[in-house]
Design a binder for these strands. Sequence first.
DNA 1: CGCGTTTACGTCGTTCGTAACGATA
DNA 2: TATCGTTACGAACGACGTAAACGCG
Lengths: 329, 329
Amino acid sequence: MTLTQLRYLIAIADSGLNITLAAERVHATQPGLSKQLKQLEDELGFKLFTRKGKSLDAVTAAGAEVLERARIIHAESANIRALAANLRNEAHGELRIATTHTQARYALPLPIAALHSRYPDVGVHLQPGGDAEILQLLERGQADLAVTSSVGAAPASGFTLPAYRWRRVVLVPEDHALAKLDRPLTLADLAAYPLVSYESSLQPESSLRRAFEAQGLPLRLAFTARDADLIRTYVQAGLGVGVLAEMAVTGDDEGLRVLPIEDLLPVCTTWIVLRRNRVLRDYALEFIVQFAPHIDRRDVRRAFDHGVETAPWPEAPHWRDVVALRSAG
Amino acid sequence: MTLTQLRYLIAIADSGLNITLAAERVHATQPGLSKQLKQLEDELGFKLFTRKGKSLDAVTAAGAEVLERARIIHAESANIRALAANLRNEAHGELRIATTHTQARYALPLPIAALHSRYPDVGVHLQPGGDAEILQLLERGQADLAVTSSVGAAPASGFTLPAYRWRRVVLVPEDHALAKLDRPLTLADLAAYPLVSYESSLQPESSLRRAFEAQGLPLRLAFTARDADLIRTYVQAGLGVGVLAEMAVTGDDEGLRVLPIEDLLPVCTTWIVLRRNRVLRDYALEFIVQFAPHIDRRDVRRAFDHGVETAPWPEAPHWRDVVALRSAG
DNA sequence: CGCGTTTACGTCGTTCGTAACGATA
DNA sequence: TATCGTTACGAACGACGTAAACGCG
């Protein structure tokens, strides 16, 4: 059993049991992986995968056990390397961020640009996905950190830092009836129209859905997407009333009106999620303080390294104030 | 970085930074270890040990970090091998038990004999030590399980199973004044004599000491040892009144009288301590059910594998009943 | 001068890539 | 027939052990 064999094993599992694809990903040849896999199976004395013909078909129960431990070993050896790289003040590497499209498009560009100017040799890889996918990427070690949002409490998995809070806004065409109201909007006003919003609104636990249900109002979704730009486009096209993150309205929306809705929907918090037991490269820490400037660098290190559960983070600022702070500083 | 390098690193650290000794322990040559260590240091880019002349002097801070993670990697790779050995129904291997002398001498022989008859090819290695040493051996992966006793709650570290409960007894020469009392003993009776007991009684938290303090009685220890046989010998020699575990009195003590003291001192519990995250070989499980027959094999597997904290173990039987059960069965 | 580490060197085993072969849909 | 995995082979590398040199107490 070698570290290489375990790395290959993980690559095969993460490539959907396609050895050829796995070989590309680890920059090796396919026969090499085949052989190492065979050797590992021979040494352990049982098959890690079931075969259908010659192709791999599924992970065996024993294989899953081994895989679980192989991931730990792989993560820890990556930790040792990260530790070493930090100690040598290495300024190059990769930062893999799993996040939602909205964060990637509106909240991350500036912090990442700042990171890039300080660490020009660090490659940043954004891995967009839904909430579950994001956390899974982090869990499986395919992302270094996750940036995700929720209403209320932090996601259960990992070590979370509050980055900022934000509200949703309503977006309508300029000539829409709702734009002409001379009173604050109510949920009932919205319920009169089909809505255009995020894909996550389809889920039964979505906060939009729950807010409507709490008032006994029907929720009609005319269109959903992960992408705020698409939502905007389809609002322009007249499909319905848009409900989206305030970060996604930049003020230059031709022919659209932004209607604040304040307390109609609960406030959201965007979190940075890290995995305990994974060594943070210095530039990852740099990204964190760029993204959540109200958080002190040393507090993060301390809380993260010592496994403090109840890190007394200062209240996360509102998005507006983050933007104001940036344009001021 | 290879698994071998990390294994060597651990061996060096656990051999008191003596590379030659470490080489023997891993069945390799000393230059081999030296070279691998050098290569690892070169790859990481910093020294893992400080040198005094040519000899290793101390572990660097960075080295300690690496070592910590190397231990995890090593433990997990051992886990994979153990998993494989279980799956192949391998009946040979080693079982390293860290325990106290009393357990080793009086409580373990029968369970180990039973284990041996079922698994004749399993080598059992008893590693006697004090309470702190025992748990450290387990922690560092130099023992597979620990058997240790305490008054009241289980040791804080690891996954604990209650094995049995026991009381202490008083041992005096046949013609001793205490042997002639026609009423139950009191602590005050004992306090009149110098005592002969376990080394652990020297510690301020010892239950013997606390019991005396609770009644404002002075505790005089004439002699202490880890070894019950020694305690018995020195009682025979007239050094004082013996206080020792009931398991250690076998009834054939020439010229000695055993005096029960029931509730004068609190009852002790002997625990099996395992480490979570360490795969249990089948024969280790066999030993456990032999040693603590009131515990169901499958309950242990389930609780251990799934990380159940509050395993609802049946009340541990008293030592007397364990002995009775054995001679009956 | 003994103890322990490092350096030097030769051998052996292993890994890796290329190329050919085999099986499957 | 295209795709994917296995087998075969040769070259290169790396690990290991032996032997000798070096430093320190």
